[in-house]
Amino acid sequence: MVDPLALAAIGAGLAIGLSGIGSGIGVGIAGAAGAGVISERPEKFGTALVFQALPQTQAIYGLLIGILIMLGAGMLGGGAKELSEPLGWAALGAGLATGLAGLSAVGQGIVTSSGIGVTSEKPEMFGRGMVFSVLPETQAIYGLLVAILIMAGAGLFGGVPKEITMTMGLAAVGAGFSVGFAGFSAIGQGITAAGGVASIARRPETMGKNMVFSVMSETFAIFGLLGAVLILLGVKMLG
C-alpha cells in the first residue's frame, strides 16, 4: 500500500514542475527573440513582452491543478482527509496530464519568437501573430481538461471523495499519459506555426492555408485526448 497523500503530493509536484519546465523553456525562447529585437528597436519592448507572456499559461494551469490537488487531498486549508490509495493514483494521473501537456509551452515559445520577430518589422502582424501563438496552447488545455475530468470522477473537488477502485486510479494515470504525451505534438505545431507567421507576413492572404498546416499537428493531440476519455469511460470513471 502506497500512502495516498504521498501519491497526491507527487501528482501536484509533477503538475507544477513539468509545466514549469515547459513554460520556462518557452518563455526563454521568446525572450531571446525579444532581446534580439530590442537591440535594433528598443521601442518594441512592450510588444515583445506581451508575446513572451503567452507561454506562461501552461505553468499557470500546472499551478492551478497542483493547488486543486492539494486542496482536494486536504494538504492546504483544513485538515487532511481520509484518502484511499486509488484516489492517490488518480491525483497522480491528473498531475501527469497537466504537467506533461504543459510542455506544449516549448512549441508556443517557438511561435511567439517568430511573432516577436515579424511584429518588429510589421506591427500590423500583431493580431495574427497572437492568434498563431495560441494554437499550441490547445494541448495544454486538453491536459487541463483531462485532469479536471479525473478529479471530478474521483470526487476530488471539495465534498466527500468518492469510492473508486484501484483499476480506476491506475487508469487515470494511463489517461494522464495519453493526453500528456500527445501534448508534445505542440512542439511540432509550434514549428509549423512559426513558419506560418513568417509566411503570412509576406503574403497575408495565405492566413487560411497556413492555419490548415498548423492545425494538422493538433490531430495527434486529439487522439491523445480521445484515448484519455475512452480510458476514463472504459473504467466508468465518468458519470
Binding site: T57, I60, Y61, L64, I67, T138, Y142, L145, I222
Partner: peptide, 25 residues
C-alpha cells in the same frame, strides 16, 4: 477528427474560466 477537435476546442471556455478563478483562489 478535425471536427471532433473543433468541438473539444471549446473546452477552453471552461479551462480559461477555471484558470482565472483558480489562480485567484
Amino acid at each position: 477528427t478535425g471536427l471532433l477537435g473543433d468541438i473539444l476546442s471549446y473546452a477552453r471556455l471552461l479551462a480559461l474560466s477555471l484558470a482565472t478563478s483558480g489562480i485567484a483562489m
